[in-house]
């Protein structure tokens, strides 16, 4: 496995799965498999700074984190409100990763 992307769609405040996804991404990175987390749908709530989030640890450990611009706009989350290290992107990034041969896991 060359690279991994986790597409996370769940609200981290409601589910514990997103925290596990973040830990998995950190673990993959540690194993030498670069990992990206793509936040879509309600998962983008975690992109908003101001709350504790396992994303901060993932970002600190080298995991790339991006949020779907469509979902951010849908929820009124402006780019300046994002936590540090979260990039604004779109579903094209998922296609990019698939083209690069990444293993993409949809949660």
């Amino acid at each position: 496995m060359r690279e991994m992307m986790i597409v996370e769609t769940r609200d981290a405040a409601e589910h514990r799965g997103p925290a596990r996804s973040a830990e998995l991404a950190i673990g993959m990175h540690h194993e030498g498999v670069p990992a990206t987390i793509f936040l879509a749908e309600n998962a983008v709530f975690a992109a908003r700074r101001g709350s504790e989030s396992p994303l901060d640890r993932a970002i600190a450990k080298g995991v790339a984190v991006a949020a779907d611009s469509f979902a951010l706009k849908e929820r009124g989350i402006a780019p300046h409100e994002l936590r540090k290290g979260v990039a604004v992107s779109d579903v094209g990034l998922i296609v990019d990763k698939l083209v690069r041969g990444s293993s993409v896991m949809w949660r």
């Binding site: 496995m1 991994m4 596990r20 830990e23 998995l24 673990g27 993959m28 540690h30 194993e31 030498g32 498999v33 293993s103 896991m105 949809w106 949660r107």
Partner: peptide, 17 residues
């Protein structure tokens, strides 16, 4: 163990969740 999942997953060519 959950901590072993990255090692396990990285050993597969394809992983479908």
């Amino acid at each position: 163990a959950r901590k072993d999942l990255p090692k396990i997953l990285s050993g597969y060519d394809r992983v479908w969740h």
